[in-house]
Design a protein around this nucleic acid. Sequence first.
DNA 1: TCATGTGAACATATTCACAGCT
DNA 2: AGCTGTGAATATGTTCACATGA
Lengths: 217, 217
Amino acid sequence: MARLPVYLRALNSLLEAEVRSCSSEELATAAGVNSAKLRKDLSHLGSYGTRGVGYDVEYLRYQISREIGLTQDWPVVIVGIGNLGHALANYSGFSSRGFRTVALLDADDSRTGELVAGLKIRAFRELTAIVHEHGVAIGVIATPAAAAQSVCDQMVSAGIRSILNFAPTVLTVPDGVDVRMVDLSSELQILAYHEQRKAQLQSGDAPVVATGSEGVA
Amino acid sequence: MARLPVYLRALNSLLEAEVRSCSSEELATAAGVNSAKLRKDLSHLGSYGTRGVGYDVEYLRYQISREIGLTQDWPVVIVGIGNLGHALANYSGFSSRGFRTVALLDADDSRTGELVAGLKIRAFRELTAIVHEHGVAIGVIATPAAAAQSVCDQMVSAGIRSILNFAPTVLTVPDGVDVRMVDLSSELQILAYHEQRKAQLQSGDAPVVATGSEGVA
DNA sequence: TCATGTGAACATATTCACAGCT
DNA sequence: AGCTGTGAATATGTTCACATGA
């Protein structure tokens, strides 16, 4: 189900190109997946295609939006307005998809009142009041790692049950709370791992199984 | 293998807490995974544990670092110095793990020379020269979606074979080039999906299979 | 005739449970 | 006695290939 947003984006760009209808093959190519996988994914939502024809782009786009829950409004709070929090607050991809940033919070009171992306930074202690006032269900953590678990705990007691965590630390949460972690450094590490493999192959090394330090025996 | 960075982070925090040795159970808890999975993952790298005892934290940390390729230096270029590129340039999690940002590039020439995170922004056209000069193998794309494919193509022809893409668009690359995509808005959408499910369950709705529009029959 | 939707085959990933080593 | 490393069992995900229906 993590692929639905990708399909949605592909459908949006087809719509921009004024494509009205498409086959699973076309949409799969645009989304960068195999067409059988796309059809199986879509068949879980219902039968929104027409055999022999394909999918109606606009109709399918609406159905996927509805399935994801984008037909409703999602108020979001962002905690930790450093460089990353700043970037997230300004990120247009959130607001354009039904996510509405209702507050920016920072533990550093000297920053309270500072204007970022059209919103005034508020004190972290206002969290609970803001969550209740706006019915916030999703919280974004962009603090340093050391603060993240505490911020998370307070989000959970304020009633937030979905958390997007950019701090490089594992968060512990009660059952019923979802956390998604985005670790920028892990992504680079995974690339480095593959890059290293490619470099080894190219330099003609045999795939290394032994460490080279065992020798004798 | 996407979990190795997580294990590495867990080992680093154990080291900070001056823990010398740990069991698979402890490390798995710290990393937020099942202990059997952790042991199986580690066994792919080699036998770095001691039966009846556990793992030496420092030794295992080194072995994982080496496996990922963090014992070598990885020069990185970041293209697109908007809010996100700015945040990435300042992100300490990169530099602290062997990744060295050697250049910040932006297509907007009016920004050339501007100082960000201690580096001067340079013109995008310098890409190839920079890649060759520093032996850059990893490129980060933080441009708007519309520019991403073109930036990607030029990275590839400059010799970059690993790309971290923050632009919300699917990139097409030749064989042998790795792309990892980080889509901030997709992450929120996935949370919204689960949140919607939780709300439905709580309000006592039966899981909806039919659309409600078929009626008669 | 054509492309969807889907069972069946295949592949990959996770978990269990215990043999083997310290 | 205790914890790793791993085969076997299970679960999940992907791809194939074709019956089905517009």
